[in-house]
Design a binder for these strands. Structure first.
Lengths: 194, 194
DNA sequence: CATATATTTGAACGACTGCTCAAATTAATT
DNA sequence: AATTAATTTGAGCAGTCGTTCAAATATATG
């Protein structure tokens, strides 16, 4: 019978995610991670394979947090568009002060990595597609309710939202003006292409 | 009398810029740079101080390329807005295939670095402000010509353009659809807030 | 309690990091 | 051509990188 691991796997992945998110893939060393999650190299490699393997778990965890957040917002807001707006504001504004990095970890990873880590890039892209798919669902629900013009392409609008998030989170690292950011997010959904 | 350096400083900085731009600050090692620019460590350190010093020169060079490009476009296009649109398209679309990285080096740097390299972050921010200042000048010129509503704030519009560039260049790394990107750039200037 | 199995440990490996500096080389000056 | 000054060289330093694996420890089974 397999012995139950002494370490708390979810907690370990969560801490690793925060460190990777803050410092990026290359600047985070295995020794940084050893200290952060309080595990010795052998245990980490037994549990996650290598640095890439642990990073993939971090990407998965980061994405799940986002997806979960969307589900939670669905229970707070009646309107699908309100869910989307609340999510974007959480990503762009709140995360600037509370998150390990103001940047989206997926966008940051896409920006940082090269062909040398193509598999990590591919993983990252597929996770961005997962988030986008949730945006599409929200927008289609909004269209069904008449909140958004039915003739517009939900895919295109979802892409537009992701572009705005990437742009605004980058800008927020330069100029973290909450009021300005708040207005900019509102503008996204009250003007073309919405 | 100081001996004229045997190496071509501008060529060295240009090559270093391309490597830093492609791989990012942390993933670019001094040995990578030694190979790329064909200089021995002693010479590099004599000329640039340290890894940070060379990176600062790279940031300066990268920014100058952008500023120069704007000046060149001014001589091709009569309309200030045409200059701005052409520049954004060059940044977002053309650079995807020709540049070392599809990303804006300044945005990439802002995303990658942490407080540990605050001086490099500050340098990067000031260069982004330089670019933004050029955008402001172009927009104000467009306003003087009646191409853009005089009542709009040129600063805000310039910020908007920078956010769109950051967002689109990130998106372009995921989905490099030239037609789609082209339309998206045109949309920036034909809808709110323009 | 003894045995077998699963898990954790941490020293250590070869390769690489940013960087230094005495020695060699090159160029300018007399 | 001899002397001085500027520049380049590259071996090498101390430290870190990602990773391995025999030994120690912990858990489960008989």
């Amino acid at each position: 019978m397999a012995k139950a691991a002494k370490y708390d796997r979810q907690n370990v992945i969560d801490k690793a995610t925060n460190l990777y998110w803050k410092k990026g893939f290359h600047a985070t060393s295995m020794r940084n991670l050893q200290d952060e999650i309080d595990m010795r190299p052998g245990s980490i490699y037994a549990a996650f394979g290598n640095k890439d393997g642990l990073f993939k778990q971090a990407l998965r965890h980061y994405t799940d947090i986002g997806l979960t957040q969307i589900q939670q917002l669905k229970q707070v807001h009646d309107s699908p568009m309100a869910v989307l707006i609340a999510f974007v504001k959480a990503q762009v504004i709140e995360s600037q002060d509370t998150a390990p990095s103001g940047m989206c970890m997926l966008a940051k990873t896409i920006g940082e990595l090269t062909e040398e880590n193509q598999d990590l890039i591919d993983t990252t892209k597929s996770h961005l597609a997962e988030i986008s798919a949730e945006f599409v669902k929200l927008i289609e629900a909004a269209q069904a309710l008449g909140e958004v013009d039915k003739h517009k392409n939900a895919q295109d609008l979802a892409i537009h939202v992701q572009i705005q998030i990437a742009g605004l989170r980058t800008f927020a690292k330069i100029n973290n003006d909450t009021n300005l950011l708040n207005n900019k997010v509102d503008d996204i959904f009250s003007h073309y292409p919405f």
